[in-house]
C-alpha cells in the first residue's frame, strides 16, 4: 500500500503566552489515505482548528510542537525548510476556512486572486492561468464563470463565496484539502450542496479531504472515517458508520445522545454532558474525560488509558474497553 497522504503521530502542541502554557494537543495520531475523506469532530476547545493549522504549519507564534511528527506523502513536514513548505502549501495541500469573507481579499477581483495563486508556475501564460481559473470556477458550479472573474467577493452570496474559496484551493490540484468548518455558516440546503460538491471533487480528482466540523450531520454525510477529538486528545477513531452507529467511548456516546436530530420523540428535556472541559494548562493525570464520565472508575482518574483496537480500524482510548477486552 502507498504511504498515507497525511500521517500524524504523537503530535503534541503547546501554547505559551502571558498565561500558563496550555497543552492544546496531546499525542494526537491520525492518517488520511489517498482519496479518503476523514472527519475530525469535536466541540469548541477540542483543538481541531489547531490541528489543521499545525498540518499547514501556520500556527501562530507562541505555539510550539513539543513532540510527534506530521508526514505528508512520507516527508516529515515539521522538519521542512520554510521555502519548501511554502511550495507545498497550495500545490500539495490547501485549506478552506469557515468564513470566505475573511479568508479571501475583499478588495481584489476574484479572478486576479485566483491567477495570483498560479504565479509560481512559469510555464503558464496569462491566458492559461485565466483558463485554469475559469475551469476551476466552472468545476465548483459557478454559473457564467468567465464573466465572474472581474467581480468582487461581496457581490456573491454566502454559498457562492464558499464555492469560490474551494475553487481557489483546488487551482493547483492539491493532494490534500483541509476543510475547517466550511459549512458552519451555511444554511442546510447550501450545506448539502457544498457537501455534494466535496464528494464529487474527491471522486473526480481523487484528492483526500480532512474535514473538520462540530456538526455530526455533516460528518455523517461525507466522511469515510471519523476521528473524535476531546480536549486535545483523540479518544476514538474509526469508520464513520461505526463511530456514529456503534460508538464505544463514553464521550462519543454522550455527544451523539445530545444531538437533537437523533431524538425521535420531541422532548423539552434534552440530554446534556454535565461538567466542563478540563483546564488544559494542567490536564488531568488520568483519562481526559474522567471528570464528566458517567461510568468512570477509580483508575480512570489515576491512570491514562491506552489506545485499544475494538474492531477493524476502530480504536478507543478508554479503561472500560480495555477491561472488556481482557
Amino acid at each position: 500500500m502507498n504511504p498515507p497522504v497525511l500521517d500524524i503521530s504523537g503530535l503534541s502542541i503547546r501554547f505559551s503566552g502571558r498565561t500558563d502554557p496550555v497543552l492544546a494537543l496531546r499525542e494526537v495520531g491520525l492518517s488520511v489515505q489517498a482519496g479518503e475523506i476523514v472527519g475530525i469532530v469535536g466541540e469548541s476547545g477540542s483543538g481541531k482548528s489547531t490541528l489543521a493549522l499545525a498540518v499547514m504549519r501556520l500556527l501562530a507564534t507562541g505555539a510550539s510542537v513539543t513532540a510527534g511528527s506530521v508526514r505528508f506523502e512520507g516527508k516529515d513536514i515539521l522538519a521542512l525548510p520554510e521555502a519548501d513548505m511554502r511550495k507545498l502549501r497550495g500545490a500539495g495541500m490547501a485549506m478552506v476556512f469557515q468564513d470566505p469573507m475573511t479568508a479571501l481579499n475583499p478588495v481584489l477581483p476574484i479572478g486576479t486572486q485566483m491567477m495570483d495563486v498560479l504565479f509560481r508556475d512559469p510555464a503558464l501564460s496569462r491566458a492559461d492561468k485565466r483558463a485554469r481559473a475559469v475551469a476551476a470556477l466552472k468545476r465548483v458550479g459557478l454559473p457564467d464563470a468567465e464573466q465572474q472573474l472581474g467581480r468582487y467577493l461581496f457581490q456573491f452570496s454566502g454559498g457562492m463565496r464558499q464555492r469560490i474559496a474551494i475553487a481557489m484551493a483546488l487551482l493547483q490540484r492539491p493532494r490534500l484539502l483541509i476543510a475547517d468548518e466550511i459549512t458552519t455558516a451555511l444554511d442546510v440546503t447550501l450545506e448539502a450542496q457544498i457537501l455534494d460538491l466535496l464528494r464529487d471533487l474527491r471522486d473526480e480528482i481523487g484528492c483526500s479531504i480532512l474535514f473538520i466540523s462540530h456538526n455530526l450531520g455533516a460528518i455523517a454525510a461525507i466522511c469515510d472515517r471519523t476521528v473524535v477529538l476531546y480536549a486535545g486528545e483523540v479518544i476514538e477513531a474509526g469508520p464513520t458508520a461505526k463511530i456514529l452507529g456503534a460508538a464505544r467511548h463514553p464521550y462519543t456516546k454522550a455527544l451523539l445522545a445530545c444531538d437533537p436530530s437523533r431524538i425521535e420523540i420531541p422532548t423539552r428535556n434534552l440530554p446534556v454532558i454535565p461538567g466542563e472541559v478540563p483546564d488544559l494548562s494542567a490536564p488531568p493525570k488520568g483519562c481526559i474525560f474522567a471528570a464528566r464520565c458517567p461510568a468512570a472508575l477509580s483508575r480512570c482518574v489515576t491512570h491514562r488509558p491506552v489506545k485499544s483496537l475494538v474492531g477493524r480500524d476502530h480504536s478507543v482510548r478508554c479503561h472500560l474497553i480495555e477491561g472488556a477486552a481482557e
Binding site: 442546510v188 440546503t189 450545506e191 448539502a192 456538526n215 455530526l216 450531520g217 455533516a218 460528518i219 455523517a220 454525510a221 464513520t240 458508520a241 456514529l244 452507529g245 451523539l256 444531538d259 436530530s261 437523533r262
Partner: peptide, 9 residues
C-alpha cells in the same frame, strides 16, 4: 434537507 448523524439516514 435537515442533516442527521444517524447511520443510514
Amino acid at each position: 434537507a435537515e442533516p442527521s448523524s444517524l447511520p443510514g439516514h
